[in-house]
Structure formats: C-alpha cells, structure tokens
C-alpha cells in the first residue's frame, strides 16, 4: 500500500518536473523569440531597380577610372575597361570581405588586404580569394550617365 502511494507520488513528482521543464523551455522560447526577432536587422530599404550614378560618382569614374557605389546595401565596383566600356563587379572581396579596387595600369581588380587579384570578369587570378567576384550589369547612355542593375549579369 505504502509503496504504491510512494510510487504514485514519485510519478506525480516526475510528471511535475516534466511540466516544469516544458514550462521553463516554453518561457525561455517566448522571451527569446521577440529578442531574436528584435535583433535581426531589417533588410535595408532602398530602390530595387537599376541605380543611376550621381554626377559626382561619374566624375570620379572618369578621373580614377573606377568608383565604388552603394547599391541596395551592397558595395559595387564600377570601372572603365581598356576598351572604354563601363563594367560592374561586386566590390566585396570573396576572401575576407575587403573592398577591392581597379588598377587601370595593370587592368586587374586588386584587393589590398591580402593581395588578391581578379581579372576584369571577376575571375581569381592569384591570391587567397576562394571565389570569383559576381558581375553586375552596367550601362552608359549617350549623355554619359551610368546605370547599374543589381542583378548578376
């Protein structure tokens, strides 16, 4: 008799502990969920279509042969290749995420952080970068205005 009540008590206790555990987990989840959602940044807002370069940016492009422009929260390298065509690549080096630059004299894209080199199509020539740079569509109109479309070409 006594042992059976003890056993019942025991199962009741372990059931209580189980519920307690579930409750604590649920509580933790209900507290953490809003906090995690709160901390997750919102996607950066901005125009999703093609982005036209400002006059200043075009001026820099003409002078330096390249310019880094923000497009939808991404850094994009816009440069003039030796054939005077305007082209665009992702400016974020695939190695450690430094911003790359165009070296007009050598016609390469170069990352100063760890000496990564890419060709004008974004393919890795030398150095540690594991992947090529993504290509983007860039177009120059008759008036000299430059438009970058944030889609891989």
């Amino acid at each position: 008799m006594e042992s059976s009540t003890d056993a019942a008590k025991h199962t009741r206790r372990s059931f209580l502990d189980l519920v307690l555990g579930i409750g604590a987990t649920g509580w933790l989840a209900s507290v953490l969920y809003p906090v995690i959602r709160y901390l997750t940044p919102l996607p950066s807002a901005g125009p999703s279509g093609p982005v036209k370069l400002s006059a200043d940016q075009v001026k820099t492009l003409d002078k330096e042969r390249f310019v880094i422009v923000p497009v939808q929260g991404k850094r994009i390298l816009v440069f003039q290749d030796p054939a005077q065509n305007v082209r665009a690549l992702d400016a974020r080096c695939t190695h450690e995420g430094c911003t790359v630059q165009f070296v007009p004299g050598e016609s390469v894209i170069w990352c100063a952080c760890h000496n990564g080199r890419f060709d004008l199509d974004g393919r890795v020539l030398s150095g540690p970068p594991p992947r090529p740079l993504s290509q983007y569509l860039a177009r120059q109109d008759a008036e000299g205005g430059v438009t970058v479309t944030p889609q891989t070409a």
Binding site: G23, G26, A29
Partner: peptide, 18 residues
Amino acid sequence: AAGILALLSLTLWLKIRA
C-alpha cells in the same frame, strides 16, 4: 506567452508545496 508563464507559475507553486 501568458499561458506558458501561467503554466510555469502553477507548476512552480506545486513544486514549492511538494
């Protein structure tokens, strides 16, 4: 959330009593 908290509170109370 309130349901979970209520459940937790209740079980905690039972636990304290036990």
